[in-house]
């Protein structure tokens, strides 16, 4: 199994740019296993390293300010959002 690729099942590093984040909560509603909206109204990853999933890719792509990045834990290659 390869690490990269949306929903491929590898391990990914999830990062939220908390300055950019405007707290829509769309990511937490989309991937509740990986992301949550903190008490300060900013999203955060529940764990720095998570299993890649379609929901996580969707959460990163749905963010209206592109504050979320999902990278392969092994290679650092960006998995989502993809351009």
């Amino acid at each position: 199994m390869t690490a990269a690729g949306p929903g491929a099942g590898g391990e990914v590093r999830v990062e939220v740019d908390r300055i950019r984040c405007v707290g829509t909560g769309l990511c937490a509603a989309t991937a509740p296993d990986a992301l949550e909206l903190g008490a300060d109204g900013r999203a955060r990853a529940l764990r720095a390293i998570a299993a890649d999933s379609e929901e996580l890719t969707e959460a990163a792509e749905m963010c209206p300010v592109e504050a979320i990045s999902v990278r392969s834990a092994a290679t650092g290659e960006q998995v989502a959002p993809r351009w």
Partner: peptide, 21 residues
């Protein structure tokens, strides 16, 4: 709340930075 999030997610797909680009 959740009701809003559900509808918003439906619409949001058409308005992501990539979709708009």
């Amino acid at each position: 709340g959740p009701e809003h999030q559900r509808i918003r997610r439906t619409v949001q797909r058409a308005f992501t930075p990539r979709a708009i680009e």
